[in-house]
Design a protein around this nucleic acid. Structure first.
Lengths: 352, 352
DNA sequence: CGAACGTCTTGAATCGGTTCAATAATAGGC
DNA sequence: GCCTATTATTGAACCGATTCAAGACGTTCG
């Protein structure tokens, strides 16, 4: 099988034209006389030419017309995680519309991740900063390509980022429950620091690595304070977003003398685990206890009961990220998208 | 912002070494004296060199170390469709393990699809032939890169393909129902020809464009014949895998004088739609009517009732596809993976 | 002291195209 | 017919690296 043996120059020679003309036949056909064009095409066909190799073009043109989406999670994360999936739908939709390609970049260990980022053939990166976001940003920065971070993480103003106002979102969730009459709360948090789990105190929150968790916590606190609720009375458990850690978190939160009548979960994932376990333990939601999530993944609408949650415009975030990369002009682009409270059936007044 | 201004040759010049040495500093550091190596690195840092540009390397090295997954569906298909998602998990897992990159290639219209395939910077393609598979294969073939088709489609022995024995799988499904005692069946088919819908007769099946649907149909027929059931008595409706078309299909199938006690659905997707609509109409599954699906997507296990179905080793297909591309040796690789019947709660004896 | 050997380094070729200024050919106008 | 536009084609430079045969330098050994 003749692979990669015939180049543009071979075709040009065989057809008796210059390489420049042969190139034009393929990339700017209108510039060459139909007669010649036809002859070159015919020659190409006879020689089994596969068409201009994108590698050559790439070097000259500079742009690969593709964006990379990078994360420190394994590749399969893109197809498993509900949040990532909705995000990717937004991203891929935008890529589709603009005719841009999409490359997925990831790796378990940071050495390989570094190499993958270094060698990805893309014009820019969307960084899905879940875990180890700092590292990811650092590695990408070295590559000197435009990139946009998707969780704002540390408030590093020098990088482009698109996110949501976690603080305001948390307030919405807390306000909703407070207005329903709840006065005793429990918080099922996502990680404040990498790979941490357990009950959390104020100091841990203040010193959190991840601003997402911190902002949500403060949002809850500030809002509840308006209703006279002291943050010190609210049990908080930092989960790792796994079923087991949520189970332990629930144990912790419900163990007090006066257990909460409402649970603030910092992600839908955590909230949905909680819903399951609450059912196992015979709690009725929302009659016995209310639960509100955060993120607004599609699954939240279909679990039982449908989850009240703070909805992020996930797909829109993805779309904007692509736009930001593709229209990059060298400036830093920071954007915070609005959140919305979606009330469903996992919340009701206490003792309803 | 200085972008792309400094090249390897600039660094080399500034550091007072040849470009060859500078290249070695980055790609084969052991070949250069630590002293020089350090000096070059320092110079690179001072100049703000981003590291060797993968474009240059690519041209020289020839391999991009990435595979493309192509389909004629829109890009978001990869993140929405349950089958595609499981497949992608297998594919991405294999890529991860081998350190290969992953590019997603698709487009609505065939012109753009053609361009995207032509210009994808990959070493090979996995073709997800759902719709318009022929065209996809044709376009990819032109590129002269290794590729493997994922639904065997037309029995074209000249291309590499990985698939399952649809015929045998369909037999398993039919046998299961027949052994439970069912004698009256209805078939909810997937497309035999592109964009078709409606009741189907033997001729249409024989002339089907898509072999998947045809093989499954014949598998059902042959097996049921062993139980003395005449294929002419079985209503078949070709759906388009949408809720509406399944609804119409169900209308058709259930409209006879002696409605079926069991439904053979050619995909889990169709089966799950059927389950929903059967419930709406007050049918109890499996007491009033049994349903068996095909594919074995994860959702099939969680719907109500859990769906009995013929399970494809979807992720394994993905893994093998990657392996096939990466270890391509110029030969045609054809493989058919075994199917398994997974009995859950959507099937029971008639009138149980 | 010279030969033989290792270790680094160099310079040039190469990968496969695109692009553009310059030239050639053709057509059109007067 | 001659001059000017217009259109097609050419040839060479260039994109940014890698690779490898050949050369430089320093050591070791007889």
């Amino acid at each position: 099988m003749a692979r990669d043996l015939v180049r543009l120059s071979d075709v040009a020679k065989a057809a008796g034209v210059s390489q420049g003309t042969a190139s034009n036949v393929f990339s700017r056909p209108d510039l060459v006389r139909p007669e010649v064009r036809e002859r070159v095409h015919k020659t190409a066909r006879e020689l089994g030419y596969a068409g201009p190799d994108p590698r050559g073009r790439l070097l000259r043109a500079g742009k690969s017309n593709a964006i990379g989406v990078a994360t420190a999670e394994p590749l399969s994360y893109f197809f498993e995680d509900p949040f990532a999936r909705v995000l990717m739908q937004g991203i891929s939709e935008a890529c589709d519309a603009r005719g841009a390609g999409l490359a997925l970049v990831s790796a378990r260990n940071s050495e390989r991740l570094s190499w993958n980022i270094q060698s990805a053939l893309v014009d820019g990166f969307v960084l899905l900063c879940i875990e180890n976001g700092e590292k990811l940003v650092e590695l990408t920065r070295e590559r000197q390509l435009p990139f946009v971070a998707l969780a704002l993480g540390k408030p590093d103003d020098t990088i482009s980022a698109i996110g949501v106002d976690d603080y305001a979102g948390a307030q919405m969730a807390a306000r909703h429950l407070a207005q329903l009459g709840h006065r005793r709360f429990g918080i099922l948090a996502i990680e404040f620091d990498e790979a941490h789990e357990g009950p959390v105190n104020g100091a841990a929150i203040a010193g959190a690595t991840y601003s997402t968790a911190r902002d949500r916590a403060y949002g809850y606190f500030e809002e509840l304070a308006l209703y006279g609720i002291d943050r010190e009375t609210i049990p908080i458990y930092e989960t790792r977003s796994t079923a087991d850690s949520v189970r332990r978190g629930l144990d912790h939160i419900l163990s007090g003398a006066e257990p909460p009548t409402a649970i603030l979960a910092m992600s839908d994932r955590v909230a949905m685990f909680a819903l399951e376990m609450l059912a196992e333990r015979g709690f009725r939601v929302p009659q016995d206890i209310s639960v509100v999530g955060f993120d607004g993944v599609p699954e939240a609408a279909t679990v039982n009961p449908p989850l009240t949650t703070v909805v992020q415009p996930i797909a829109e975030i993805g779309r904007r990220a692509v736009k930001t990369i593709l229209e990059h002009d060298g400036s830093v682009h920071r954007e915070s998208l609005p959140l919305e409270l979606m009330v469903r059936n996992s919340t009701a007044g206490p003792g309803a």
